[in-house]
Design a protein around this nucleic acid. Structure first.
Lengths: 154, 154
DNA sequence: ATAATCCTTACCACCATTGTAAGGTCAAGG
DNA sequence: CCTTGACCTTACAATGGTGGTAAGGATTAT
């Protein structure tokens, strides 16, 4: 299986497959005479694993630990479990934060008339809410799906 | 107010303030004789607005639209509302996915012996789960709080 | 044989953010 | 008045993931 097929089979772009290899997240596969990477079903498996974990919000770095455990089957499954539990906690926490955001937003939206009067509390809420938060910003979040109408246009 | 004070007052780093200015998200402030940026309370307000929106997961691009609405109070609040609603939807969806993930992980963890036998189903579950998802990857998520033990070490 | 499609590497761009370096400015204290 | 330290200025690099592009070789299909 060459990289294109592996990509299709795993849902990971060829770009990212090579990238993951380059940072040592996956091991360098064998090559054909002519230098083509050759992947096994197992590799695809790993890629799908990665894709999955990525979707779950694991950073590439975090996946390193997970993958290490996966690869080295002799590692104690207790390790896996504890890592997983830690992730679960982080996951839940993130979901909670997300819902809090949603709730805040919804609350504001509920009090926004939705007509053409410019006194929508969403914006006031935004502007007024936060105490100067000197907390270090988390890695960005990007809940996409909003069409900005004039961003960067200045 | 110079940039440092504005930063402290708004919770936005001086770096980012300059960055936001450079991409036109905020307007270039007046300068002193010697070139120092001078900010007003209003500017701090806007910065806090940005900080807030950022925390809620709006991308800088998205904030462009929000900010435009904020600045131009005559714009229909319906615009704001629809943007917010769309964001809420995305937020909820993400939270849902996160919880599904957490649930899966927890389920797997529950069936992981936690001893030193290497047949922990977490990893198998991960690897097996996803159908090849050719969906374009969302901006990353960053469920932080896990210490990778050997990432990148290959 | 040739064309189309794939592969390879090597770059560059993006976003949001932080860091660093080299220099100018300001306020306080000696 | 001069030094010191904290601030400001710009400019440039790096980060993590990801996408794009280009130049050249390999494979496949016609």
């Amino acid at each position: 299986m060459n990289i294109g097929e592996a990509s299709k089979a795993s849902g990971v772009s060829t770009k990212m497959i090579r990238y993951y290899e380059s940072i040592g997240l996956i091991k360098a596969p064998l090559r054909t005479e002519s230098g083509y990477r050759v992947y096994s079903d197992n590799d695809v498996h790993a890629l799908r694993f990665i894709s999955q974990a990525r979707d779950l919000g694991f950073s590439v770095e975090q996946m390193g630990s997970l993958l290490a455990l996966w690869r080295d089957r002799s590692r104690a499954s207790a390790d896996v479990k504890s890592i997983a539990l830690e992730h679960i906690r982080a996951l839940d926490e993130k979901a909670r934060a997300l819902q809090a955001m949603s709730k805040t937003l919804r609350h504001l939206a509920d009090h926004c008339h939705g007509d053409d009067r410019p006194d929508c509390p969403i914006i006031e809420g935004f502007a007024a809410a936060a105490a100067p938060t000197p907390k270090k910003r988390q890695p960005r979040f990007g809940v996409t799906g909003i069409t900005p109408d004039r961003a960067h246009a200045n």
